[in-house]
Nucleic acid binder design. Sequence first.
DNA 1: TTGTACGCGTTATCAC
DNA 2: GTGATAACGCGTACAA
Lengths: 344, 344
Amino acid sequence: MDQRNATNRPGAKHVALLAGVSTATVSRALNSPGAVDPATLQRVRDAVAQLRYVPHGAARSLRSQRSRMVGAIVPSFDYALYAKTTSALQQHLSAQGYSVVLAEHHYDLEQELHVARQLVEHGVDAFMLVGIDHDPRLFDLLDEHRRPFVLTWGVDTTGRHPYIGFDNRAAAQEVARHVISLGHERIGIVSAPVEGNDRGRERLAGFRAAIAQAGLKEPQVEHARIALHDAAAAMKKLLARKPRPTAVLATNDVLAVGAMMACRAAGISIPDDVAITGIDNTDLGATQTPGLTSVRTPIVEIGEAAAEQLVALIEGRGEARSRVMEFELVVRDSARRRLRRKDG
Amino acid sequence: MDQRNATNRPGAKHVALLAGVSTATVSRALNSPGAVDPATLQRVRDAVAQLRYVPHGAARSLRSQRSRMVGAIVPSFDYALYAKTTSALQQHLSAQGYSVVLAEHHYDLEQELHVARQLVEHGVDAFMLVGIDHDPRLFDLLDEHRRPFVLTWGVDTTGRHPYIGFDNRAAAQEVARHVISLGHERIGIVSAPVEGNDRGRERLAGFRAAIAQAGLKEPQVEHARIALHDAAAAMKKLLARKPRPTAVLATNDVLAVGAMMACRAAGISIPDDVAITGIDNTDLGATQTPGLTSVRTPIVEIGEAAAEQLVALIEGRGEARSRVMEFELVVRDSARRRLRRKDG
DNA sequence: TTGTACGCGTTATCAC
DNA sequence: GTGATAACGCGTACAA
């Protein structure tokens, strides 16, 4: 008999036949090689190799209630931020035989719920989500379907859900303090939209806190979508103000670079006329002229830790353990000590 | 009866019971609503909503030999290039109920074969691959398992496999000619590794062809991994040469920006002392000072077209149709007409 | 239009 | 250590 099944794929049956064992043994040889006699194990392995047998994932999932797939739901893959986290996740999972199923929601929590449902249906075992704030129905969904998950890129101060991230507010506060320590007093802010974006909200709050603590007056805040041209437009508004801010804080590097573009277009010198800072320490910012002062955030580390955590949860070893990671101010030349001028 | 199955998930059975129909009708209501009486259809839908029934993907896949998942195997998610293509793919597939399973191979074709096997096992229906060159065993694998696929980011001149891409060689040739037309004669090249990387190889060939056609002398070529610091190191070598090249072509924007970093570190002015160009027209390059002259490549369009093509192939409508897309020279300030100098 | 009954390919549960 | 057998949850002939 050399018949194949409908898909023309050799199945465990064929391997069993060729190795002279039962399908049960084939399954054991693949999944718990320790529990099978070395000699038969070898025969099975030979048969597998000869037939180039590839187990049928769907059948395995159906039977074992485990798909060995992890869902990664991120806001966006633009600008390499979450893409890098996902990449780290993927590499670590792939090494353990898991695959990553991707979804983006473009900062729309309704959409996030929708794609999460799609992934649950596709049978992913666990989820990496970005941020702390999500539609309550999303948590219900995951709960109902017993899907472990980990929130990333933030800290859940309510302690309700497991997370792996860092304190966005503190990170923002740290750059802001740095800028203030350089003598800046009129500060503008370019902020990402904060709706459904706790990272952005926390960062903005961190800026505000530092400014308030220093006793400076309320900053002007311009919101922009996370795109260079939107950020440039927001910066233009800040620059139109008289007197102009001497420093502009952006809630991330992309916005900061957009702000830099606006300055260049307007012939305004960085950092002499205006200081600019970002957050996340991306290559985009680091390679600007002048280099963007920023905060290094644990972009890659988050993905690695998430992979480790999720596999542990899926395989039933260990509890969900939240982790707070470090960040680090990276000083470059886009923000310097404020020059006293006639307009200052 | 309110029993649930092992996973505590309501199944088609439960829906059927609640709606007062058979599981067959439930299945039909979901998959071919036209073939079911409007009244019963409504009852089924109500039951589905009430129980928050989510079909079991693995069971469905097992039965229908279709997982509604597409594999995206890309070299890397760093630098937002392939991430953007994948993002476009994902968005278009998600809208049609498909999900994307991600894998990276970091320019290792052996690793690519390995992850492809993993994805076949996980049951993905079709593949988007990047580039034209792959391990022959990869094509065998896909063929054996009847998995449709499309190659991207290049043109398969042998016509053996379907592709959606652009002519990398011509793109490179176009920037090179532009630079030559500016009067540059001593040209250096920073190239990505070409092993297992047909895009890089074609681009390098395009540079060489343009230089040869112009009757200029052989360029010095330095290879660097696609990372800023490696590119900077390669550039340093080019700059050490006496006489120095007056223009340096990079096979992509990341390498070009790395080259810019080296110039800045060495106090060499762009474009007065040396002209630099990239390919791919990324934000990274566009936001440099001076802005990087580059070639816009159809990064997003490739992903969209791949999604469309793959769904068509999976659903059995239409043949694989290869597509050649356009690119476009984007002139900025990193390359200008060559200044005659004492050393020229 | 709807229901009955079987099978997709694998793994878990028993015996042996 | 190994084999027979019964599920896993759904889709689809076929019959009604």
